[in-house]
Write a protein that binds this DNA or RNA. Structure first.
Length: 429
RNA sequence: GGAGAGGUGGCCGAGUGGUCGAAGGCACCAGAUUGCUAAUCUGGCGUACUGGGCAACCGGUACCGAGGGUUCGAAUCCCUCCCUCUCCGCCA
């Protein structure tokens, strides 16, 4: 959520910036009109309420007869105030609703562009391995290895669900364990085990509501929303709080399943495990002071890259242009692993600096020192990493001509020392 | 799920219709003082919106779990909901 004052005081600049992210800026004028009405009414109401308070106080000291007389006037004033209050509430509701639909402003260093084409590859590490055979896509590999079962996943739940068994299930678990260990022992993150369902205030705070209502699962009877990412509970961990500056920066990490409806992606990425309704992810969230967030984004990305590097999988970092930032990000990098089987770069991490956008929605503030005014923190989030796509990249990059898959060195301690995942046939032989 | 108790400022805790943004204490900050790692005294010490000074400031309004209601006026009375605690029931 943007600061209304910013829109009020620098409307032209704000509109110019919002145009860069592809927002229809006419909405700003509507909002400002509503806002100025709101302020006018607020001022009038304040005056009337002050008058009522003063006269009511005096009324207490009047004699019985005098009081009877004054009461009629006061009743009228009270009714006028009540009317004004209802009107004010409506105006507040409308301005708030509009404000909640306006996307974040880009940071100044973000390249201006309109969509994917404006994105820039800012880093490329490890050239793709040259295969002397035709690498298989993971859906073939997984089935041949007997570690991914698509049919039974559909039977159990429906399309976009799958089952992992044996070494596949263990590989998933190994990845989670290894990533978390790197986060907490080397990169300074605090491990968190959050609820997988949160209430609507939290999803509003993270910026998923109201705009992305249709992308989430929710309980039909109670105010529970299945988290689409651990970013939601992690970012909101300090919602409504005023933190002491000495606590910043806060680095949080969590492994959680994530749930997404994927209605908007109907027909896209239907094969394989790239895009499911449920997937595992290790998430990183940072809560930092405003002046630190740009630099913190760089290290956040680096934290994600380090995992790719240690898995020894080719990857690149893409800087999102203004047109591809999404709703909440003020700056964003995607980390993509190369998948030689399906022949595409897979987004395994998306790292965003949300600046004070989420902090304002969720009321996450900090105080620099005793007596200082509270300020909004900046929040950042990034995957570290998304599991299915990392798993795809592992399978496809580490596949061998005989259909087996070598286990990345860093994961072997988490796989009981297993070095190669072999198809059932070769196990027998 | 049933019964009971309760939700007040960073914390503890008064307050049952008007002068309460809210006593008192703790914590915290500033100053004073004391020959000493502390005590004492004085003052300050919430958030948001808003008007003016376009700055450290002064004023107004709102906020005592949330939302409604009664009233000239509500932290205080009524209703609904949420949450916490205790006991019982049920259960992974």
């Amino acid at each position: 959520m943007l600061d209304v004052k910013l829109l009020r005081e620098r409307p032209d600049w704000a509109k110019q910036e919002l145009a860069k992210v592809g927002f229809a800026v006419e909405a700003v004028d509507l909002l400002l009109e509503c806002d100025s009405q709101r302020r006018r009414l607020q001022h009038q109401l304040d005056t009337e309420r002050a008058q009522r308070a003063r006269q009511s106080r005096e009324l207490g000291r009047l004699s019985a007869e005098e009081r009877e007389q004054a009461r009629d006037e006061m009743r009228a004033l009270g009714a006028r105030i009540a009317r004004g209050e209802r009107e004010l509430a409506e105006l507040e509701r409308r301005t708030e609703a509009m404000l909640l639909e306006i996307p974040n402003l880009p940071r100044p260093q973000v390249p201006v562009g309109e969509g994917e084409n404006g994105n820039k590859v800012v880093r490329l590490e490890l050239v793709p391995r040259a295969f002397d055979f035709e690498p298989l896509p993971h859906w073939d590999l997984g089935e041949r290895l007997g570690v991914i079962d698509f049919e039974r996943g559909v039977k159990l739940a429906g399309t976009r669900f799958y089952v992992m068994t044996g070494a596949g299930a263990r590989l998933e678990r190994a990845l989670v364990d290894w990533m978390l260990d790197v986060k907490i022992t080397e990169q300074g993150y605090l491990e968190v085990w959050p609820p997988l369902m949160v209430n609507s205030a939290m999803v509003l705070g993270s910026g998923h509501l109201p705009k992305f209502r249709d992308t989430m699962y929710r309980d039909a009877e109670e105010d529970f929303w299945f988290i689409p990412t651990a970013e939601v509970p992690l970012t909101n961990l300090y919602a409504g709080e005023i933190l002491d500056a000495s606590r910043l920066p806060i680095y949080l990490t969590a492994y959680t399943p994530c749930f997404r409806r994927e209605k908007m992606s109907a027909g896209r990425d239907v094969r394989g495990i790239k895009r499911g309704h449920q997937f595992d992810k290790v998430e990183m969230v940072k809560v930092v002071a405003p002046e630190a967030s740009d630099q913190e984004l760089e290290t956040l990305v680096e934290n994600a890259c380090e995992l790719c590097r240690r898995l020894e999988i080719p990857f690149r970092v893409v800087q999102m242009c203004t047109g591809d930032l999404g709703f909440t990000a003020a700056a964003k990098y995607d980390v993509e692993m190369w998948a030689p089987g399906c022949g595409e770069w897979l987004e395994v991490s998306s790292c965003s600096n949300c600046a004070d956008f989420q902090a304002r929605r969720a009321q996450i503030r900090f105080r620099r020192g005793a007596g200082e005014r509270p300020e909004f923190v900046h929040t950042l989030n990034g995957s570290g990493l998304g599991l299915p796509r990392t798993l795809i990249a592992v399978l496809e990059n580490y596949q061998n001509q005989d259909g087996s898959v070598t286990v990345p060195k860093v994961l072997r301690p988490y796989m009981g020392g297993l070095e190669v995942i072999r198809p059932p046939e070769s196990k027998r032989g």
